[in-house]
């Protein structure tokens, strides 16, 4: 399948759908084809991709030791209260 030529406007309009992987493979290929050839749209896409990666990284935070301890204690409690045969 040949890529469909998109205007810069169409690319920017769908940029987040593309970054969020909401497009089907043909639509994504159309965007990629444009991004490989258009410096302006590529720069914009890279910016949003970088920011998105930084947001994604906020989803990791050192779990405090007391949380680890609490979970172990809860699991210990379960081990005692039932014989852990799942059914």
């Amino acid at each position: 399948m040949n890529p469909r030529a998109l205007s810069c406007e169409e690319v920017i309009e769908r940029l987040f759908d593309y970054l969020d992987r909401e497009l089907d493979s043909q639509e994504a290929a159309d965007i990629e084809w444009h991004l490989q050839r258009c410096r302006d749209c590529f720069t914009r896409a890279e910016f949003e991709r970088r920011l998105r990666a930084r947001v994604a990284a906020t989803g990791t935070a050192k779990a405090p030791p007391r949380l680890h301890r609490r979970i172990s204690a809860l699991l210990d409690g379960f081990d005692e209260s039932d014989t852990a045969t799942d059914s």
């Binding site: 989803g59 990791t60 935070a61 779990a63």
Partner: peptide
């Protein structure tokens, strides 16, 4: 654990 906690946070 760190991702579970970070996401919950």
């Amino acid at each position: 654990m760190d991702r579970l906690y970070g996401t919950a946070l």
